[in-house]
Design a binder for these strands. Structure first.
Lengths: 416, 416
DNA sequence: GATATTTGTTGTGCTGTGAAACTTACTGAG
DNA sequence: CTCAGTAAGTTTCACAGCACAACAAATATC
């Protein structure tokens, strides 16, 4: 099968020797990333100054990126300064797009985003997928995806890649979902099960939903890392998931399963957790635990809890205070291990933010080692009905932005 | 001061545009790293196959590395295969070396290591530096370093760089020690305080001792990442420090203070810790706590504890079991957050390894989320009287190996 | 001793960047 | 309105570095 079986026997087959073309690819990516990373449009001259390349080289590279539909020339607005006015370069609108898909316990959602960050198509199918059949649910997601791709294409965009987020343990390199406890799924290759509706050539990567959501939260736009891009993300759904983000990159750890803040130990003899251990954060701050402690229905929402606290319900207040205390303890341990200076609370914690804050901050202040030099700040994730779908679309686009040459070559051959 | 104040005003001044010479530097580093990373000597032809470069290019680059004294040609040993015999290339012995220094509470130690990993010079000064005066202790270390450098130079080697490890919070980028609680030092620039004895041109980087030790443990030789190179390292001295290592790289976190496993919370209402919080791992597994719980003198050693347990001392056994339990709880939380599949216990934990193992493993097995797919293994760090000095020397060398062009240019001008 | 095989070296051509001159498009002063 | 001044973008040419292919060297096998 392999073209060169003998060479593959070597222990480390890297093949990253750089040739002339690698140089071009590198500089092309450099210029492309710079255009996308900048909050303000850059001219060729400014790009040259920033990258250290000459104006002539930047011109050649920019030309290529423009032809590929990745960046566009804008109208020069009178700067008032003498000299030939600069032509601002910005991400191209409506040409190339990424698809983010998210299969969760109570919905399937997707969105197509273009290089400017504009949403070209979006849709959500509510449902109850607890202990569901993946061979039924994934084709549903595939159909949704195909409709979104068609909408985007009707608006003139090409969908480059897709990222499918799942609430569970994922082996991203192998493209396999190992376990999604709440869906009741285990050991399957989801991308292949989306069905025939999607274009066969479209690459579909998979990821853990909290990781992908955190990735999106760390981005202000496609290819643009947000000002606040190093944090611990904690999502409060039925399970408490999370991610460790530094400089916009999600740390995967050995297998890509890092960030499981929900199973940091709060009290070694605490309540039994479904994971088999005792005293995990999830048993204090998971949705079911909070609802039970607050005396609310298991189907109530975080907003219901917030409302109960607001109207003075003692059980609800105690439940939220306990969750805040446990979150603070778990996050203090986490911060000491990973050295973050920001915490972002997402999904179910967002409506409870104001009520959680004092308790979480008290524990963080008391227990983080580096406190005097680096106060840990706490904020809510932006309100987004589908953060993992958004993050997935941005992730799909970033592979194009980070390696424009890799996109241009296949795209050209596919177009004919 | 700055040559180009206008350009510095840009938000992100990267300047990583690649020119032709960058290409050469990249490939030079690639070949160099490949020679050092390989456990078995490689020929030019094998290097070409591995890197994807042609044999002619590899020949040119190897020639340059040989001239610079970084690699050397060995005698060809009869392979028994037909064809012209390959010339094995290996790290050069005794030409270029790195210096590791470690100032700890009870000793100052240093060692000079060459590119093959051979120790060219080493020395240790015992002492009691608890709450000491840095303006007295650091010149002591500087003098030790100068003697070691001289010894190495007498043996024909040039010491390229140095790495000074300190037991505390370090800002490596700024070269400042922020706080070393046990030394009683705070907010100083240690490299400049080593004194005049060291060659002025020699760069001295500083690092946290646990991070640097972990770095060394993840290396089989200079530039060669060990087979087991992703782990959580925990060092048990008076304080319990640590590091998170993945693929041989130590994760720093936001400020470089990641890995403080000693302050992961075990019991939120546990014993008061000197850090101001309660129930930190250090209050269960730190040396002073264990000695006190075992009923031994505060100056006793970990070996004394192990001996007491071995002869059936109940208090010692209980103390060690409690430490093991706490270590297991803390490491389970840590593993869930950073996704490691190996734990390495170092310094004071090494003699207690056998006695700690069952308790630690029980907690790890019960509490790690990804257990079924990835069993966490536990091992002792190799016995090394000065792991941070070794790690520091390797780190110093790795900057040369990773950027040979950066070493060759200044080295040539310095030699004349 | 002839042949096959693999390693390392030597020329030639191609690719991509830098440097500098050149063109373009604007501001502002007289 | 004209003309200098200024900065952006383009063109031309030389140079650096790699791939490719042919070649030389050193060994095993028949």
């Amino acid at each position: 099968m392999r073209p060169d079986p003998a060479a593959a026997s070597a222990l480390t087959e890297r093949r990253d020797g750089a040739r002339q073309s690698s140089l071009r690819e590198h500089n092309l990516a450099l210029v492309c990333r710079a255009v996308f990373a900048s909050p303000v449009p850059l001219s060729r001259a400014r790009l040259a100054a920033q990258t250290g390349l000459t104006r002539s080289t930047v011109s050649r590279l920019a030309e290529e990126l423009i032809r590929a539909g990745l960046i566009a020339e804008n109208e020069a607005d009178g700067s008032g300064r003498p000299g030939r006015p600069a032509v601002p370069l910005t991400p191209a609108a409506g040409t190339v797009a990424g698809l983010g898909l998210h299969v969760n316990v109570d919905y399937v959602t997707g969105r197509v985003v273009d290089l400017t960050g504009a949403v070209l198509a979006a849709a959500t199918l509510p449902g109850d997928f607890e202990d569901s059949d993946p061979t039924a649910v994934l084709p549903l997601a595939g159909g949704l995806a195909a409709r979104l791709v068609r909408q985007a294409e009707e608006r003139g965009a090409r969908v480059a890649r897709a990222c499918l987020s799942l609430p569970g343990l994922v082996d991203a390199a192998a493209g396999r979902l190992l376990l999604a406890p709440n869906l009741g799924w285990s050991d399957l290759a989801p991308a292949a099960m989306l069905g025939e509706a999607l274009p066969a050539a479209m690459a579909v990567e998979i990821g853990n939903d909290a990781h992908v959501a955190a990735y999106g939260i760390a981005r202000a736009a496609p290819g643009r890392v947000a000002a606040q891009s190093s944090f611990v993300y904690v999502a409060g759904d039925v399970g408490v998931g999370g991610a460790i983000v530094s400089d916009g990159e999600v740390s995967g750890g050995r297998h890509g399963w890092a960030g499981e803040v929900g199973h940091v130990v709060i009290e070694p003899d605490g309540p039994a957790c479904h994971c088999g251990a005792r005293g995990c954060l999830e048993t204090y701050a998971g949705r079911r635990s909070v609802l039970a402690a607050a005396g609310l229905s298991p189907t109530a929402s975080p907003e219901d809890v917030a409302a109960a606290v607001a109207r003075g319900d003692d059980a609800a207040r105690t439940a939220v205070e306990r969750a805040a205390w446990a979150l603070g303890v778990a996050l203090a341990s986490t911060v000491n291990v990973v050295d973050a200076d920001e915490i972002v609370l997402g999904t179910g914690f967002i409506p409870l933010m104001d009520q959680l804050r004092p308790g979480v901050e008290a524990q963080l202040a008391a227990r983080t080692l580096a406190g005097p030099w680096s106060r840990v700040s706490l904020r809510a994730a932006p309100a987004d009905p589908a953060p993992a779908a958004t993050g997935g679309a941005l992730r799909a686009l970033e592979t194009v932005i980070a390696d424009p040459a890799g996109w241009i070559a296949p795209a050209r051959s596919a177009t004919g």
